[in-house]
Amino acid sequence: MSTTGPQAQPGAAVRIERLALRFPGASAPVLAGLDLEVARGEFVAILGASGVGKSTLLRAVAGLIAPSAGRVAVAATPAADRLPVAMVFQDARLLAWRDAAANVRFGLERLQMPAAQAGQRVDESLALVGLGELATRLPRQLSGGQRQRVAIARALAVRPEVLLMDEPFGALDALTREAMQGELTRIRQQTGKTILFVTHDIEEALVLADRVVLLAGQPAGIALERRLTLPLAHRREHPDLLALAAEFRAVLGTREAA
């Protein structure tokens, strides 16, 4: 479990040291010797081609798979009413038999808190993602974007130290996707959450993150890393973004061709 490792350094929310990971059943590691630190409140996007190990890395941070070497530490004060990390998957993975509010409550049911407090958290989380009105809707009555908002609310409700997002907007149409990116930026500004965000979309990574890390190679390592200082509000149209995107694309292209 990611929380049982050594505490991250002061200021670091996630500390990954010489991490090696294998796909289940595979002999060669997909990641080897990876070092990465995510500061408290930082938004780090992990970029990379399909199959490079981005999602596997996220699962290791979530404690869903054990590293074959190295370690992952999440700095979280142990508490009965919150989880150290929470995950948002590419498919919303809502429980079809529960309405939106009950889906948000799913993570809270494993935590220790009075029902009233859980109810309050559900309401707050749904309001935060702009779905307060749709609390009683079943997943099948929600659009793809709304379902993903419920999934984000479910993750936020457990008050995680770190929010892990695995291509959360990958299955959405272009317009919804852009709207959701804006929503995520707003939610992040409101909550100050540390976010580790996996995507294969260079523009998405550059529009959202404070730092973009490109994973490439076999086993994968960090091929390029850039800190972004452009103002979040106007990034999409910023000329520097194109230049950065070209830089990432060039490295990604060379590595994939190699």
Partner: peptide, 8 residues
């Protein structure tokens, strides 16, 4: 996997 991720 979802259940695992939320502590079940």
């Amino acid at each position: 996997e979802l259940a695992d991720a939320f502590g079940y």
